[in-house]
Design a protein around this nucleic acid. Structure first.
Lengths: 248, 248
DNA sequence: AACGCAAGTCAACGACATTGACAATTGGAT
DNA sequence: ATCCAATTGTCAATGTCGTTGACTTGCGTT
């Protein structure tokens, strides 16, 4: 056999040996087509499964075709995240006459979004996108804080606290869900066993309450955290209102 | 990146950049020696820089030597995390007569630990290690909650809420710090500019307070979150105490 | 009809984790 | 003291990944 480096480019033969594997039609790829395929893969195999080779297979195209449309993988992933976010909560929020209900509703919207796309949670939590969806949410929350009676200065910082708590808690919970089911169950089981086995002399409080302790993924945690925050905000708002109104 | 073409070519004798150091002495490697090297690398180059090849170079050993001491990379990383944690806050916590101070102190201990090792923050937040350091912290916090006057059932769930909020917020903040400084500054700058530029008719609340808005990495966020939580716990404890004690 | 150029393809590269075979060193049994 | 087998370090090889540069193909313009 001669060197196969040059004569491998047989014109029609190599194309026809796999009838299904023809070259993709020109302009049949686009950012949107690729993003859709990426979402399919990520939803099915997780973020780790989202490789260029997997994309190539999903699209029936050569893996490196994607480089004609995205500079690198990071650009693709960021675009995908933005795509999902805008699809998940776009303009579904309407203010009621209860700031508490509004904030709670916003919190659950975001929480739900994170749990829907656990693969991306970690990346979503720490980045601001500065896009319409984000602006709308900020405006909505800010309005609720002001209606609660907080002075603007407090509203500004509480907005961030509230938002960060929601996103970081959701992200963490989503991160857990993203683990393999088997690993997670094994962890939870080991957790219960080991905490029950601790010496009561050394850890009296743990021992006395071991039945009531709950593991890290307990869904009540998020609900409780939100209610605690709303309580705290209410207290502060009342206090500020009293001071501002000089004893009204 | 320059191509290090010189150090891989050594077949037989040219390995002797260091004469006499053909092979590491027997038993000169151990879990602890490897973990120390791993910490050095991670602190210097980040968690992404922690590869077996880097480890090999740091130890002047063959990269695969590590497999004699750790089953795989995950085991190494988890062990490293546990190592750092126990070194960072081991038995420095002492209960005072103020449950509020105690919980605050615990929160800051953990927060500081996360900021000290931002590379590991993401992995630390979501995993329970079930090790002495963790047990001690849980016992400490549980005791504080009970002293605050919470009924055991509430203490159990609040323990988780408090812990998850601390860890997830710290993790997120650390994640920001772990980004390259350049990227982070560019992001913060863009954030301020874009929020100031928004149309007042569409986002009146944002426009009216644009000067007071703060970015995602504001260090006051953590402090405020903790104080809000402590407030909320105090309210709940008073309520529970009043109900349980039938009017004090 | 010819051609330029964008879009798809392909092989190759270097970095990565992991594996199985191999070599050197050690301590214990003889 | 000597041998042996287990332990520990080494090395080549495998298969994955993202990314690059050279190539081919065919559409739109001329």
């Amino acid at each position: 056999m001669s060197t196969p480096s040059r004569d491998r480019k047989s014109r029609t033969a190599s194309k026809q040996d796999r009838p299904g594997r023809t070259r993709r039609a020109r302009d049949s790829l686009s950012r949107q087509v690729i993003l859709d395929a990426a979402e399919t893969i990520a939803a099915r195999d997780g973020l780790d499964g989202l490789t260029f080779q997997a994309l190539g297979k999903e699209l029936t195209a050569h893996p490196t075709s994607i480089y004609r449309h995205f500079r690198d993988k990071d650009e693709l992933v960021l675009e995908l995240i933005d795509n999902l976010r805008s699809r998940s909560y776009g303009g579904q929020l309407e203010a009621t006459d209860s700031w508490r209900d509004d904030l709670r509703s916003l919190a659950y919207h975001i929480h739900e979004h994170y749990l829907r796309y656990p693969q991306f949670a970690l990346q979503m939590a720490a980045r601001t996108t500065r896009r319409p969806t984000e602006f709308t949410n900020v405006e909505f929350a800010l309005d609720a804080f002001l209606r609660a009676g907080l002075p603007p200065h407090d509203a500004a910082i509480f907005l961030r606290v509230f938002g960060n708590v929601i996103r970081s808690l959701s992200s963490m919970e989503a991160g857990l869900h993203a683990l393999e089911a088997e690993t997670r169950e094994r962890d939870a089981l080991a957790w219960h066993l080991e905490y029950r086995r601790l010496a009561p002399e050394e850890y009296p409080r743990i021992a006395s309450m071991s039945d009531q302790l709950t593991d890290i993924g307990d869904p009540r945690v998020f609900d409780t955290a939100i209610e605690l925050f709303l309580d705290a905000i209410e207290v502060r708002a009342r206090k500020a209102d009293g001071e501002g109104g000089q004893g009204t």
